[in-house]
Write a protein that binds this DNA or RNA. Structure first.
Lengths: 192, 192, 192, 192
DNA sequence: CGGTAAGCGAGACGGTACGTCTTGTCTTATT
DNA sequence: AATAAGACAAGACGTACCGTCTCGCTTACCG
């Protein structure tokens, strides 16, 4: 049978509460930023009890991760334009575009959790970061096959690229705009 | 008169309290990590009143910044070995060496503050990050003058290098060891 | 027809669930005392849903009242030894004997409910306390008829006797033992 | 030196906060009764943080005890009219008069705590009940010396009298009015 | 024998209180 | 004037219980 998601006994989970919580998370991120994003505030704004919140998400980190997942359509577009420079440029421009102010604040909230607590870092890595690295890695592996970059270069490029993104985001070094996308694409493509 | 630091009336600031606070900050970072590094805990462990703490440092961020400054000898060694690859390698290896566990926890505490609060990000950038970037920039500018890298390449290299460092640190991607130093140095030196 | 308890349609009430609930109530009273005697805990220990619990008992008070009723054989023995002193002594000694540790904890749970909420007090009075007063009143009325005590004396004696019992129980003034039974019997019998 | 209450360093305790808390306790008892008398509600109504509440009182019981102490002028008047009946009557009438609706609700709150938790019962006994018993005991001991009642009769009378008071209060048996005072005085005086 | 209806377990839900913790400010006496 | 001592308002933390609700399944009867 395909019906692996057998209906369990008991009152089913309220999809409305779930949506309200994720919406409240986005609103709070937008309005107050990471500092205002407390479990207490999420429950209050969503009109939901704290017990419901803690029943489904063990920590703020998990809520934010799910809010982010819900927000983006989950499939990361993979350009294939024939050269590493072009592919990278397209990929990073797309990344920049999808990173609006609210998303950036959610990401900063995640970074704050990760920095403060290694177990949260593990969680975020496994549930969020590996996916992004995986997508980018496909582009890089294609370039490896084309001989544009070495295997070792591809490996470190993942850190260089995403590192520069988070670095700018967390410390407000400079905006994550098309200029950044172009500069990074150009630099990495040059790593032969 | 040379005495520009005019003696003010009243009881002078206690150097002992200052040392106790910075020592307590290091100890807490070492023992409990960023989560245990609260102003409350620092005052408690230092045997100092919170009043004194807040009189001289407006936030935990400032305390951590000063503890870090006290810890390292402030002058960042600048290797000059004739090539970007060699200089970068030496510089990053040195960076890796000086980043022991306690320092890493202090840096993660800083990152948590920066991520959660843009005004803290500003502070950390101005009082800590710009210095590191300045040091690395000297190495890169030397390479620019030697024609090893373009001006634009040097600019983005700063983000790529430090970005990958913080990225690994915050999210626990991989250790900051000599392998990392070598891979980064090699990749950046290849950006012609 | 004698079948006054007309069979209603639908699944009949589970006697097993009822027994499990009353048993769980006694166990919890014995193990944890009044504090641990929550509706939540009763349902959990009985392996019964809260729905079932609230369907048949509107409050914890009602559950405890029924558990107490089930526990004692409901008929309060009425000694008739010819004198108020002897009757009272026998009655109170019997009361003391039947008040084991678990019963005392159930009674304290009832007192806590009554003290906190007048509507619970009403319930307990009507469903529990009036019976005990009725039994004792029979003994006293017999003494009134024998001229051993006045009507007014009998009336206030009910409060004095049961009052001292609850007072000792609730505030831990002193144990409810035979010494208490004797002292009370002696004092009340002297109220001519 | 007599100045045993040496001024300690640090910000002194706020008498205003203390008064606000005790006032809030009385108001809540008057408005909502024992059920509405939570630490949370007291702090809210008093405009005080929960930390301040818990700093000075470890439990709701302690707050209520202090509110009661503040409320009555602490010295229990001891009538001396020459006979046990007269003394008891006067004493209990005074007790009835001072037991207004708010006081009764505070006492019921205490009883609820005592019934639910033996350690609270201990606290209430030592800090409240022993004083009342002590006052009444003085009246009874005077009667013992006059030969109006035996030592044993005096001992159990304490339980009978206060027992009947709490019994009526907790279970709403009957009002604590002058009729009660008279009936109890008459009955106890008859216990020769 | 199939329909009807209540009972039941499981468990989600909004609400509220608990007691603890940290933040940043404040108010003292002492140094 | 700086300090330690520590009180204070504010508010988040994660847990517990309350009483209600909404499911699917079970167990009777009744036609």
């Amino acid at each position: 049978m395909v019906d692996s998601e057998q209906r369990r006994p008991g009152r089913p989970r309220s999809e409305q509460a779930r949506q309200a919580i994720l919406a409240a998370t986005l609103e709070l991120a937008a309005d107050k930023g990471p500092r205002g994003l407390s479990m207490e505030a999420i429950a209050r704004r969503a009109g939901v009890s704290k017990e419901t919140l803690y029943r489904w998400w063990r920590s703020k980190t998990e809520v934010v991760l799910e809010a982010l997942a819900e927000r983006s359509d989950e499939t990361i577009p993979l350009p294939d334009e024939g050269s590493l420079a072009a592919d990278l440029g397209a990929f990073l421009r797309d990344t920049v575009v999808s990173g609006d102010a609210t998303t950036q604040r959610l990401l900063r909230a995640l970074a704050a959790e990760a920095a403060a607590d290694p177990s949260m870092a593990d969680l975020i890595r496994e549930r969020f970061i590996v996916r992004r690295r995986g997508a980018l890695d496909q582009i890089l592996q294609r370039a490896v096959r084309r001989g544009e970059i070495s295997q070792a270069g591809a490996a470190i490029a993942l850190d260089l690229i995403y590192g520069s993104l988070w670095y700018r985001l967390i410390f407000g070094i400079a905006p994550l705009d098309n200029a950044w996308a172009a500069a990074v694409a150009r630099a990495i493509a040059a790593v032969h």
